[in-house]
Simulated scan of single mutants.
Amino acid sequence: MSGITVVTPAHPARQRSGMLARAEASVAAQTLQPVRHLVVVDEEQQGAAATRQRGLEQVDTEWVAFLDSDDELDATHLEQLLACARALGADYVYPWFRVAGGADPFPMFYGRPWDDEQPHQTTITILVRTGLAQLVGFHEPPPGSTVGGHRGGEDWHFTLGCLGAGARIVHHPQRTWTWHHHGQNSSGQPGRGDARRR
């Protein structure tokens, strides 16, 4: 099916705090509306990888976009990313972000074209072809695993999996979403930040 599905993994604390409602409102305000917004709640405290994977398995549209439950999209986020993907024949498009409550941890990568030979962290707020995403999937990296000299989470390993599958990855050098740092970020781990709270 054509169109985009947005997948948002969430844990119960984000429902109670109102962060999830803010994320949902940003999807509802998109100028290019998704076919569906799947919110998958991590009731069992399995972490972001397993929760995002459960959502991904339900997607049947051509494209899937991911949004964490404590972040929010600009109104033209989906429209810009799909236009970029179509114009450049991309399978995976990543934009950039503004940070609320903190600083950009990867300022050196903003505006730098993607290089297959020197891959770098992109965050998971991307647009990707669903078939590719389902082929690669989200899996929590083994403890102590590192790539390129640093530990990456399931989103970094997903990106490398897409690259290994032959994806055309493109950077859309625009800030199209807000990454909220709020002192309770869990970095996808069920035992960190507000993910500890049921």
Rank of each mutant, 00 (worst) to 15 (best):
A167M: 05
D68S: 12
P9M: 02
T178Y: 06
Q121F: 10
R22S: 14
H181C: 13
G166F: 00
G144T: 11
R196N: 08
D104S: 00
G191F: 11
V136R: 03
C162P: 12
M108D: 15
Q58G: 03
E44D: 14
D116T: 10
R22A: 15
H171A: 14
Q189G: 03
T8P: 12
T61S: 13
G47C: 01
H37Q: 14
L163N: 10
L132A: 12
L32I: 02
V59E: 09
T122Y: 01
V39N: 01
T61E: 09
A10F: 12
V59P: 04
P9S: 05
A49S: 13
W96L: 03
V128M: 10
H180D: 07
S26C: 02
P173R: 07
L56F: 04
D70V: 02
Y92D: 03
Q45R: 15
L127F: 01
T76W: 11
R151G: 10
M19G: 08
D74K: 03
R52G: 11
F109Q: 04
H157A: 03
Q134F: 04
L78M: 00
A25R: 15
V136G: 11
T31E: 11
S2E: 15
Y110N: 07
E43F: 05
G3K: 11
Y92E: 09
D194P: 02
A49R: 04
A65G: 07
W96F: 15
R112P: 00
P34G: 02
P173C: 01
M19W: 12
